[in-house]
């Protein structure tokens, strides 16, 4: 369960979040809203990449402000740009990189990495140069690099922006099958089928918070 209590945040003197009050026990949660409305900032707070100036965030009882390390183990994060998430030369090494601190032997890490790659549609790509994968494959790789750690929560910030229609659909289907709690930030409202809850942000405030259908109806009206 993710809890935001009276969360506020500023960059310099610009207020980007104010008074966000949310309790999110649902398995599939989405943040939507206009550019600059504060979605990414809110999502980053879930794993302590940004700490709130006011209020408090709790992720399954863990406070990112105090337990940064534990929270980041508990929460996986997939970013928009897959190129920036890949840190190692080959797909297998990149996934194995996540397991560095796990105490597993090098061979075991490589084996686990290959398993996870195979599970999420990158079977046989362990030796492949990571930067020569297609955009969709790179984003899958970024997902694998997180899932190999088996986090309890997965936050994705516009993970499909750079993907084509087919890869986007595949990624969305994959998200649907995960056992993790998923928080998805997106502008692509088609991805929200099967979501339990949609939070609409505007100017740093929560303006709607409901099941997808009514929330999105509100959001569409807001945009007009």
């Amino acid at each position: 369960m993710i809890e935001f209590s009276r969360v506020g945040h500023r960059f310099g003197d610009r207020v980007v979040l104010s008074d966000v009050e949310l309790t999110l026990p649902e398995r599939r949660v989405a943040f939507v809203g206009a550019n600059g409305s504060g979605k990414s900032t809110l999502a980053r707070m879930i794993n302590g990449l940004v700490l709130p100036d006011d209020g408090k965030v709790l992720v399954d009882g863990l406070d990112p402000a105090k337990d940064g390390r534990k929270v980041r183990k508990h929460v996986g994060f997939v970013f928009t740009n897959p190129d920036s998430q890949i840190v190692m030369p080959t797909a297998g090494e990149d996934v194995a990189f996540s397991l560095r601190g796990s105490g597993l032997s090098k061979a075991e890490r490589a084996r686990r990495a290959a398993e996870v790659l195979a599970e999420y549609g990158l079977d046989g790509y362990a030796e492949h140069p990571a930067h020569q994968l297609s955009g969709g494959q790179k984003q899958l790789l970024a997902l694998c690099a997180m899932l190999v750690l088996d986090p309890a929560v997965l936050v994705c910030d516009e993970p499909t922006t750079l993907l084509d229609l087919r890869n986007k659909r595949r990624f969305a289907e994959l998200l649907g099958t995960l056992r993790q709690q998923v928080v998805l930030v997106t502008h692509d409202l088609d991805l929200l089928d099967g979501f339990d809850r949609v939070v609409v942000l505007d100017g740093g405030r929560v303006v709607a918070d409901d099941e997808p259908e009514p929330a999105l109806r509100y959001y569409r009206k807001l945009a007009e």
Binding site: L49, F77, F79, S84, Q85, V87, S98, M146
Partner: peptide, 10 residues
């Protein structure tokens, strides 16, 4: 972005 990705991966 790399810094964030590295941090997210511990």
């Amino acid at each position: 972005e790399l810094g964030e990705a590295l941090a997210a991966r511990g």
